[in-house]
Structures are given as C-alpha cells and as structure tokens.
Design a protein around this nucleic acid. Structure first.
Lengths: 188, 188
DNA sequence: AAACTATAGTATCGGATCAATACCATATTG
DNA sequence: CAATATGGTATTGATCCGATACTATAGTTT
C-alpha cells in the first residue's frame, strides 16, 4: 500500500506549494506556471534556455509554453535573443527584474517557514528521498532527467580542472556545470 | 541551500504527476483538480465529505470547488445528500462509477511504473520523509492536518476495542478510523 | 539548385481552471 | 424576532492548456 500513501503525500505537498505560490506572486500579477517557467530559465544552461527545452521540462505543449513566455517577456521579466548559428532558435534570458521576482518568490513563504522546523539531518534525508523517487520515476519511464552537468555522462573534467562537454565539444566553466541541461545523460 | 533543492524536487515531481494524471484521465473527460476532489471524497470520513471540507483540503475558494463538484455530479461520479440535522450542509458520496474511475487513475500509470523500481525499504524511507516534510509545513503554518482518526487526539479506543470520537461523542468503526478528517488534531 | 522533410516557434480558438463578488437558505445568537 | 454567521450556488472575467494551423529556417535527397 506504500505507493498510494507516497502518491497522496506528493499530491498534498503539491497543492500546498502551488496555492501558497499563487498567493505569493499575486502582487506581481503572475500565475504559478509562469513563475515555474521563469524559475527553470534561471537554473538551466545555455543549451537549454529555449522555448522547446522549457516545453520538455514543464511537460506541456509548445503552444502553451509559447504564450506563457510571451507574458513573461511583456512584463519585462525575460528577454529573447535569436541564436547566431541557427536562426530558428531563440535564447531566453531572465532580466534583473525577473531575478528579483524569483528571489522574492522561490521558495515560497510557507515553505521557507516550514523548513525552519527541520534540522540539517532531516533536510538531508528528505532531499535524498525525493531525489531517489524522482530519478526512479524518470528512469522507469524513459524520461529526460534535466540534471546538472557535473552529474552528466558527457561531462569531462580535465587535469587542469577545466570542464569539457563531450556532446557539444565545448568547454564549460565551473559555474556552468552547476546548471541543468536538457541533454543530461544520467549515470547507469 | 537544501530548502531550494527540496522545493525544486517537489515542483518537478508535482509537474510529472500532474501531467501524467492529465493524460490518464483524458479518456474520462476529467481534469486533474476534479480527480483530486473525487479522490479526497473517497478517503475522508462522514464529518468531512462536504463542499466546505473539500475546499479546505484543496486550498481553493468555495466557489471554485462548488463548480468542480457540479461537474463530477453531472458525470455521475458522485451524489449529493442534504444533511438531516443541518439543512445547509450537503454530504457527497462517490458512486460506483466514481470508484472505478479512481481505481483506474490513482496512482497514475507513471507512478505505478516507477514504484516497481523501488524496493520496500526505499519506499518506506520516502514515505517517512514526505510525511515529516508535510507535517512540518502544516505545523509551522498552523494548517489543518487532515489526518486519519487513529492518529487523532480526539480519538479514544475503549477496552472492548470500539472507538469513540471525543469531539462529536459518536462511536466510530475500525474502518472509519482509517479515514481522514477535517477536525483532525495532531499529536503534540 | 530545387524539392522535400524536419525542427523551432508563433497565432488562434475553444474548453476548463480559478478567484472575486454577489446572492440565497439555514443556523445561531442577542 | 432581528442580526449575524455559515454552507453552498451562480456569474463574470482573466488565465491556462491543448489542438490545429501556420511561418521561417535548417538539413537532406535527387
């Protein structure tokens, strides 16, 4: 009967956070899904800051995501930049205004308040449990993992400490390898 | 930085399950929130099967929940019954058709598939971690817990094994004490 | 080089969510 | 019996979301 209980807990937590998020971002005139899209763009790397990548991450259709991004652009929270090599591709960058919205909204007030009641060990256990659950669900269903480069099979660290992506054959900085990527290859 | 990561994982899992749920219930012509409302009504006790209780559980406004329930009733998945003592109150019962929809949809296919990749110990750990996180968030924010009667401060087990709710002064069966209640009093 | 195909992205439409407001009916309190 | 509180419904408007159709660019085939 454990799957049912786990499912229930996730559903409850999901409702709590979503509703709290809704209240928190009302002052900015944003919707929960818009904040999530903005959040994604703030933690992804330069291969993954496009409408299509956001579509895969959010699990919606590209048309839906397109208008979500349109709203965010109109509000001045992100800017669009056409790719120099492939003119079909648009890169999305979170503006300073967008960053400050994220800073104020993520994690949500309720969540921040709740975490003060958890010690470091408990937080670690919860984090590990969630990571295991997420990765198991993703593997069992052949889904993209959207992990950070430092845990990616394509990532290669050279002797001088620099990083190289073996998929794109491009160097990555130590900051960039902490960002999530749509091409992430999880370890076997 | 743990709070951020935990928040991210919950958000990811939430998106995964919601989108999967959306696909799974499309054949019934239902929306995710409608399935969640139906699910709640299938696991709550007789003090908690009303529109107001569902409103508190789902964290929305009563107007929103009212029309969600209206759709479920029109589809024949639940039935309404006016309370005999307080004629303002309506009790909601999941029909046989509603039960079969729930059986087919909860947990979602993706989730069931994923859980086959987790052994019993791992499932237990994840369940415990989620329970701790949920209860901490609820306590820190003075929220209702919606726990089962068997873990409620009002619940009293008599010597002959029968149960009594000290809040309503009514007897409860062994089946009923496994259901969730809007008046649940969490242990100190 | 021309034609075909695939991919990234946008535009539009319709059904649904959701909050806000107003409203009705029943209980409870003074 | 009047005033207030509570449970629930109806309506409206902004937004979400998927489906479909469309444009533009890139790559591939002949």
């Amino acid at each position: 009967m454990h799957p049912h209980k786990i499912y229930d807990y996730i559903e409850r937590l999901s409702n709590l956070l979503r509703n709290d998020s809704r209240r928190g971002i009302a002052e900015f005139g944003l919707q929960p899904i818009q904040l999530e899209a903005l959040h994604y763009l703030s933690i992804c790397n330069r291969y993954s800051d496009t409408p299509m990548a956001a579509t895969e991450y959010l699990g919606q259709t590209k048309g839906t995501v397109s208008q979500t991004l349109k709203v965010l652009e109109k509000k001045g929270l992100l800017s669009k930049h056409v790719d120099s090599h492939d003119k079909r591709v648009t890169h999305l960058k979170v503006t300073a205004a967008g960053q400050s919205v994220l800073q104020a909204s993520i994690p949500s007030p309720l969540f921040v308040q709740g975490c003060t009641g958890l010690n470091a060990v408990a937080q670690r256990e919860i984090e590990d449990a969630l990571e295991k659950l997420l990765s198991t669900l993703q593997h069992s269903n052949n889904m993209k993992t959207f992990g950070v480069c430092s845990s990616c099979g394509y990532n290669q660290q050279n002797q001088d400490g620099s990083y190289l992506c073996q998929l794109t054959q491009e160097p990555l900085t130590s900051v960039e390898v902490q960002l999530i990527c749509r091409e992430h290859l999880a370890a076997a």
